[in-house]
């Protein structure tokens, strides 16, 4: 008898393989990561709330730790159903594949448990593949992954003499350890990641805030957060993203809610927003008020949009 398997029905072997990879990453902790960073991190936040957040470039991490981070990503993608288990199993992946050497280094924003070194949250910024910077509207410009999935040109409309492809970073989806029990610590992880993300954008953009953060996200979730944190966001409606079934990440576009592509720029007051979040995170435990923070940020957004 011949049995046909469709790509969205992982085999029992694939199921067992991925379960085993999840167990593997649950066991891996990296308390030594902080000390292993070469040079100054782009961002480092450690104020005794039980979490430590770092933002580092690829070359600042020994490969063992980079693999650990990419492993965390793979595990969360598997938990969220964003990656194809059968392809993961067939390729014997235990971490998301390394990107081949490229023009601009990737940045990893990682939140760890200060006590155990377990990775609890992550967001990444992928740098351009172009060996030499290209104008954003250069004909034949290699498309970013988001552009390919949504079949649109996201960067072209932002073409300007002072901007080129090395200023564009693709935002990898925000991830939180799905196995973390809810509680005070779990609720701080997204703020740590948001702060690390924002500080990294500022560092990459330099004094002129010259950078574009490109990606796709669900409107009610990440897009709302990106807006709240102060990014000047343009969201593109009406795309129907998909990836061929040979691509590891094809299931990410088969979810109930479709992710929308966006381009984010750094507005003038962005640093102040980050300072506000930082102040919130450094406040003593009993006095921290997340609602007040959200209200404060929302008020700022309102003021900024009012003529």
């Amino acid at each position: 008898m011949t049995r046909t398997l469709t790509a969205d029905q992982p085999t029992a072997v694939a199921g067992r393989y991925t379960a085993s990879i999840l167990r593997l990453h649950e066991r891996l902790h990296y308390p030594g990561l902080l000390e292993a960073v070469r040079g100054e991190p782009l961002h480092h936040h450690d104020h005794g709330d039980g979490l430590v957040t770092l933002a580092v470039r690829d070359s600042q991490l020994p490969l063992r730790y980079l693999r650990g981070i990419l492993g965390f990503r793979l595990a969360q993608y598997l938990r969220l159903g964003w990656i194809c288990p059968s392809l993961v199993q067939r390729a014997a992946l235990f971490h998301e594949p390394f990107r081949p050497a490229h023009g601009v280094e990737d940045v990893h924003i990682v939140t760890l448990s200060a006590e155990s070194g377990r990775i609890l949250g992550y967001v990444g910024l992928s740098g351009s593949y172009d060996p030499e910077p290209l104008p954003l509207d250069a004909p034949g410009r290699p498309r970013l992954a988001t552009e390919l999935a949504h079949r649109i040109d996201l960067l072209g409309p932002y073409a300007a003499p002072e901007l080129h492809t090395h200023h564009a970073f693709e935002v990898k989806r925000f991830l939180r350890d799905q196995s973390m029990p809810p509680g005070a610590l779990a609720s701080l992880v997204p703020w740590h990641i948001v702060l690390g993300f924002g500080r990294s954008l500022l560092a990459l953009g330099g004094p002129q805030r010259r950078m574009l953060a490109v990606g796709d996200a669900k409107e009610e979730v990440a897009i709302r957060h990106l807006t709240l944190m102060g990014l000047d966001l343009t969201v593109v409606d009406g795309t129907s993203p998909s990836l061929p079934r040979s691509e590891l990440m094809w299931p990410i576009y088969e979810q109930d809610t479709i992710a929308k592509p966006f381009v984010g720029r750094l507005p003038e007051g962005f640093r102040a927003d980050m300072d506000t979040i930082e102040t919130y995170l450094t406040e003593a435990r009993g006095t921290r008020n997340a609602h007040a923070l959200v209200e404060q940020l929302a008020r700022r957004r309102k003021e900024a949009t009012q003529p």
Binding site: Y30, A92, G117
Partner: peptide, 12 residues
């Protein structure tokens, strides 16, 4: 190998 060997690459 992917399921077992990376276990030894953590800090613990």
């Amino acid at each position: 190998q992917a399921r077992y060997l990376p276990l030894f690459a953590g800090d613990e």
